[in-house]
C-alpha cells in the first residue's frame, strides 16, 4: 500500500458497495416480483421487500408450468437444461482433449490441415449459421433430441486450443521419460497427461457448463416439442404471449430458477471460474 488515507479507503468501499448493489438490483426486484400474487403485481404499489407468495408461486411454476402459454413444468425444463449443459461440457472436453493430444504429440499427414479446419469453427458462431444448421439437423432427423440439441454446439475449437496450449507447456522430458520406460502413447495420456490437466479440465468445465446452460437460440429452433424445452428458452414463450400482458410473477419465478444453477456454480467455484475465463481467451 502506497499511502494510507482513511478517506480514500472509505470511498473505495462506498463505490464497491454501490457496484454490488447495482448488479444485484435487477435480480432482487425479480425475486420480489416472484413472491407476489397477480393482484399485487398489477396494483402499482411497489415493494422492495418480498411478499408472502413465495412457496405458492415457486411450487406452481416448478410442478405445473404455464399451460396457457404452452410451457411445461419448470422442473422438466431444468432437467432438460441440465442434460444439455452436461452433454455440451463433457462432450466438448472429451473430443477436444483427444484431438489436442494428437495434434501436439504426433506428427502425421494432414495434421496442419486438420488443425486449421478446427480453427475455422471460431469464425462462425451458431447464431450466424443457424438456418443451414437447422436444415442439416432436421435432415438427419435429430430435432427434439439431445444429440441434435448439443452436437452443433460441440463443434467449436475453443477447448481444443486451450488443451493444445496447456500440452505445449508440459515439459517434453515427461513424454520422453514415459517412452523410455516403455509406456505407449495412451498410457502416457491416461497416467501422466490427464492427471496433470485436472485443474484445466475443471476450469473449462465451469465455463462450458455456464455456456451450455445459457444457450438460447439453438434450443429455441431445435425443439418443437415442448417436452424438450430448456428453461432459458422456455421463458420466451411465457413473455411473448400474444395480445396480453405476460404473467410477470410466474415469469420472474421461472427466471430466478433458470439462473440459479449457473450462478451457484460461479459462486461455489469462483477460483476455477476466473481461471477458466482467462484461460479460454488465450
Amino acid at each position: 500500500m502506497v499511502e494510507n488515507r482513511p478517506f480514500l479507503a472509505l470511498l473505495r468501499h462506498l463505490v464497491l458497495i454501490l457496484g454490488v448493489a447495482l448488479l444485484a438490483l435487477p435480480v432482487w426486484l425479480a425475486f420480489v416480483a416472484s413472491t407476489q400474487d397477480g393482484g399485487e403485481m398489477l396494483s402499482g404499489q411497489f415493494s422492495l421487500l418480498p411478499s408472502g407468495h413465495l412457496i405458492e408461486n415457486y411450487t406452481a411454476v416448478l410442478f405445473q408450468g404455464l399451460a396457457s402459454a404452452g410451457v411445461p413444468p419448470v422442473e422438466r425444463m431444468i432437467f432438460n437444461s441440465l442434460t444439455m449443459a452436461l452433454a455440451i461440457s463433457v462432450g466438448k472436453i472429451a473430443i477436444s482433449i483427444l484431438s489436442a493430444f494428437a495434434i501436439v504429440y504426433f506428427r502425421f499427414p494432414l495434421r496442419k490441415t486438420i488443425f486449421w479446419m478446427i480453427f475455422l469453427t471460431l469464425m462462425l458462431p451458431v447464431e450466424v449459421r443457424i438456418v443451414p444448421t437447422f436444415q442439416v439437423v432436421s435432415d438427419l432427423g435429430l430435432l427434439n433430441s439431445t444429440a441434435g440439441l448439443t452436437l452443433p454446439l460441440i463443434a467449436s475449437a475453443t477447448a481444443t486450443f486451450l488443451f493444445r496450449q496447456f500440452f505445449l507447456s508440459v515439459p517434453p522430458e515427461l513424454a520422453e521419460a514415459a517412452r523410455m520406460d516403455g509406456a505407449g502413447p495412451m498410457r502416457f495420456f491416461t497416467d501422466i497427461l490427464l492427471p496433470l490437466s485436472r485443474t484445466n479440465i475443471a476450469a473449462l468445465f465451469v465455463i462450458l457448463f455456464i455456456y451450455g446452460w445459457n444457450q438460447y437460440i439453438w434450443p429455441f429452433v431445435a425443439t418443437t416439442d415442448e417436452s424438450h424445452y430448456t428453461v432459458v428458452m422456455g421463458i420466451q414463450r411465457m413473455v411473448a404471449v400474444p395480445d396480453s400482458e405476460p404473467i410477470w410473477n410466474v415469469v420472474m419465478a421461472t427466471a430466478i430458477l433458470g439462473m440459479l444453477p449457473p450462478v451457484l456454480v460461479v459462486l461455489a467455484m469462483q477460483r476455477l471460474f476466473v481461471k477458466g475465463l482467462v484461460d479460454s481467451e488465450k
Binding site: N214, I235, M259, V266
Partner: peptide
Amino acid sequence: VWPYAVAPALAGVL
C-alpha cells in the same frame, strides 16, 4: 462476478 452466469435472455427479461 456472478452476473456473468446469468443467461442473456434472462437478463433481458429482468
